[in-house]
Write a protein that binds this DNA or RNA. Sequence first.
DNA 1: ATGCAAAATTCTGAATGCAGGATTATGATA
DNA 2: TATCATAATCCTGCATTCAGAATTTTGCAT
Lengths: 230, 230
Amino acid sequence: MDSKSNTPATREASSEAVRIERPTLHNVVITRVRDMIIEGKLPVGGRIHEGQLGQQLGISRTPLREALKVLASEGLVELIPGRGAIVRKLSQKDVQDMLSVLSHLESMAGPLICQNVTAEDLQKIRQIHDEMLEFYEVRDRLRYFKLNQQIHSLLIALTGNESLRLVHGILLTRMKRIRYIGDRTEQSWLDAIHDHEEMLHALEARDGARLSAALAHHLEETWERVKSAI
Amino acid sequence: MDSKSNTPATREASSEAVRIERPTLHNVVITRVRDMIIEGKLPVGGRIHEGQLGQQLGISRTPLREALKVLASEGLVELIPGRGAIVRKLSQKDVQDMLSVLSHLESMAGPLICQNVTAEDLQKIRQIHDEMLEFYEVRDRLRYFKLNQQIHSLLIALTGNESLRLVHGILLTRMKRIRYIGDRTEQSWLDAIHDHEEMLHALEARDGARLSAALAHHLEETWERVKSAI
DNA sequence: ATGCAAAATTCTGAATGCAGGATTATGATA
DNA sequence: TATCATAATCCTGCATTCAGAATTTTGCAT
């Protein structure tokens, strides 16, 4: 779920000490409300009532409003002046367009990833993948989903291209809701896992083109999985 | 300068009436502060003093803070918890990475644009282009720059892909500051104009691949122009 | 004069207050 | 009973206020 941290990763390579993480309230709220949208707790097309939601979260309207502005800039929420925020509804075309952009971004990413990936990176990804499989075995969809997203985010991060990470993260976030509710028959679930395994193989072979192809194929299947859910 | 409006363009094709534009203060402030950063009125690396800037703009801290959150999510400023906002500094690698992503996005855009462009669109772009040339004649850099950006934004909008427009807009915005201060010798300026003319020709010929190539070439030259300014 | 510690000040983060527009409820008339 | 106008309520947008953290200043000791 860390596909996009709100303070861009401009970490000083010089200082040894790890920057203390002091989460500000509005940052927490951004993540929280984002998750609520993704998990469908805030219905698509529904209005977000500042006072009500604020009370529900136990905070004042101020940090909530700040969070809504950010979510609007990510395209998750629509802000109508004088009338508040509504959860943005995505059309089929919206989703297709997003997948199309994501596909291009990932095809760009493939070679870069293979160029940069270290043995430790590979091991880490393999580890998350295996963990994900365990959740698949017990059909724990939510946890499976979260690890799945994590792998994709990690891969893009391996390109070392911060801007790519940023824009990819934004689109991935926009897609999350759809992906989460998307059809998951046994078969399509299995297909997705096979895609992931092919991705890992390409990665291990450091074959950029193959990785790009695998990522693209995965997105095509994603469309098949989600199109009925819109 | 309208590369990225803050309420995503979800206009109802059904309603004939044009949605009345009621600008909220924080939206105005977002644009305003963004421009201040781009034009260098807020120095790179410098801290943004909420009280001071707010007073200077004649507004309270509330809408200013909301604007800063959005600008942070665009990557223009960095928010350090407990210590406020600073104008983000871009390294050479940052800029190269951005250009690289932009290049991929534009190469994706080329065919789509040529596929969608209407005669009116063409005329409109040609018109802006000519207007831009007039500002070139009198060496009015700022106005030239603004029309230049407008053409690029318009082109991407012609793809009809809202997500593409969003992410392209974010990166373009991030680049603006650099582009604005970038080296402009007579020669490089002339080169840029020739690039634009080639783009227009490709567009008129509805030749997607040629347009993509022209856009890519333009970005390569952009790098040459700006690299010394970082 | 310099370095350190404590106090004072300043600034951010968040809550509350207030004004104006939007929505809903009420009631009168056809 | 339906429709429209008016009034009451609610909600957003923004300003102000308050608390706590960060910074600067001051004073003391070396």
